[in-house]
Design a protein around this nucleic acid. Structure first.
Lengths: 335, 335
DNA sequence: AGCGCTTCTGCAATCGCTTGCAACAGCGTA
DNA sequence: TACGCTGTTGCAAGCGATTGCAGAAGCGCT
């Protein structure tokens, strides 16, 4: 780790190839501007010397760093992890990288990350941003910003109509004869949870039924397990859960308690991450295109950067997939 | 997102403060080299203009980017997620950022990430690296590299003596009278899994007992659940599991199958992430200082960068904590 | 053969900041 | 009063790439 002794620079390649530095630069970034023979020479030299352009020097002059930033509340949530991974993968195809910044779901930390990274990245993708729309738009004046999983006025946003999906599941429950449904709510202060919850309550009101809300809790496995007992005791015949991590935790505890799904209670969740691969009959869920959201965001950012101007990529609400399975069953007669 | 119209540069601050650019630069990065009065002026100007140094320009000249890279196999594994989060947090205290690169546990992708990021970061922390030691050391000649969770000759490494911890758990099982133990193995090709498995088998040989190995499987919840049935059918009275995610999956399925812990089977795992907070009696585990590992790595890198020279920070094997609980019980007489 | 055009290449400026060096001021001391 | 310091500040030279511009070379055409 000693030093930059043997770092290969543009000049070195130029000398090796017997051309000027500018030619090397062009050969590497705009091959069509260079004669085929020269191109070959340069490529050969660059290859044999193991040349890699100094990103800082390039960034200084082009104003582009090749980085996008992705702001996520945390990484424990597999949904975010999946989004981040997919975003990275797609970005890699375009020769870019994604810097993941964990904000803890905290508006202040989010703002700090935006400020600190602004000079380092070509654009931001913010997942479930906590910052006020105005702050995000302020940043957007200088660097493209897209919102994921939350609609923000004035920004390109990618969302999923999860509440609608939950509604469809809810309808199915009604159809099956359930009259007492529990909802285990997600992160306190979450925009997404708010929407899911409101949709359910409203839906329930229309059907004249009741939805009992438990939580909100941090969307962690253990929290789901911890909530299981209270939910089981509440006398509901079906449970809708904020996300799959909580659902797994809840079912884990149900298993230990001897509560059977779906015989004793029907269950479903939003964000089906890790639910599909379970052995046995699948679980009802609103499908979560976590990866797709990440890819959309990166694609939109790339387009905006390419466009150069103040083009606004169109946002999108991704189609909502719902998997309805036998984890939903008629309420148990005896209960 | 239009343009760099209103980006504040060093000159702007200089003009505002009525001093030269060099003075501003010094005031901001070496305050003790500047007269107090000047310092105040400069700070005021920088503040009011909202100046932020262009990182690329700085990096170009100093050779430091303020970034470290952390290479992890994936983010779905909460162990890695925890390491990454902790690393970021500690780095932030030093004004640095951690770039997380997901390698998929693939040597080629890992090598690519190393090569691509080499110019962009001040150092690497590689978690469970797949690359041959030689490749890592080659990079280390230019940028500091530390290894996490795997010892690599010639590199600063931070590991946990998890195998030893498993051995202690194994001893306890023997003591309780178990004679037939299963081990659910982790990722194929994993150095860590290899070590854990070997230690167990060796341990078993010494005790004259048997360890049946299941897997290896991808360390995912669903995989643990999928393996549960075969394990239960194998007639073992205790199961040791590669990590907590698999364990939870396995127990999840046990619950659905009506297999009770610890009445029917004793369980324990390495990497206790997410195990501690579960309701009910805690589960036996080798404690995983995931966050600590991340912090150690960042601290070591920071030190090496500071040192400038080819100083080698000393590696460390973190103390192994073991939590032995009632998830271990005597084998069921009837089985 | 000469002209104009298209390609291709090199020169040199530039991106925004850091830093070695020199200039200068203010001060204590001789 | 003059000298030598220490403590501050500005000048200017880069860091390593990109890129506008102009010159050079190659080509087809008249």
């Amino acid at each position: 780790m000693a030093g930059p002794d043997d770092v290969v620079r543009l000049d070195d390649v130029a000398r090796e190839a017997g051309v000027s530095a500018s030619t090397v630069s062009r050969a590497l970034s705009r091959p069509d501007m260079v004669a085929p023979a020269t191109l070959a020479k340069v490529r050969g030299a660059a290859e044999s010397l193991g040349f890699r352009a100094n990103p800082a020097a390039r960034a200084l002059i082009t104003g582009r760093t090749g980085f996008f930033a992705l702001l996520v509340p945390d990484l424990d949530n597999p949904f975010y992890a999946a989004t981040a991974t997919a975003a990275q993968d797609l970005a890699a195809e375009g020769g870019r990288r994604v810097i993941i910044a964990v904000t803890g779901g905290d508006a202040a930390r989010e703002a700090a990350a935006l400020a600190e990274l602004e000079g380092q990245v070509d654009g931001f993708a913010v997942l479930s941003p906590m910052s006020p729309a105005a702050a995000l738009k302020e940043v957007h004046r200088r660097k493209p910003v897209v919102a994921i999983n939350r609609r923000v006025a004035g920004l390109t946003s990618f969302t999923v109509d999860t509440p609608g999906g939950l509604g469809r599941i809810y309808d199915r429950l009604v159809e099956l004869g359930h009259r007492d449904v529990a909802y285990l709510a997600g992160p306190p202060g979450s925009w997404m949870d708010r929407r899911r919850r409101d949709e359910l309550v409203e839906h329930a009101a229309r059907s004249g039924l009741r939805v009992r809300v438990h939580g909100p809790v941090r969307p962690a496995f253990a929290e789901g397990a911890a909530a299981a007992r209270a939910i089981a005791a509440s006398g509901c015949t079906a449970v809708l859960v904020y996300n799959s991590l909580l659902l797994l935790g809840m079912m884990f505890e149900f298993g230990r308690m001897g509560v059977r799904v779906p015989e004793d209670v029907s269950v479903a969740a939003a964000d089906d991450i890790a639910l599909a691969d379970l052995p046995g009959p699948p679980i009802t869920a609103v499908l979560a295109p976590a990866g797709e959201l990440g890819r959309c965001a990166v694609a939109a950012l790339a387009e905006m950067v390419q466009g150069g101007g103040d083009r606004r990529a169109p946002g999108r609400r991704l189609p909502t997939g719902v998997r309805i399975t036998d984890s939903l069953a008629p309420p148990r007669p005896g209960v």
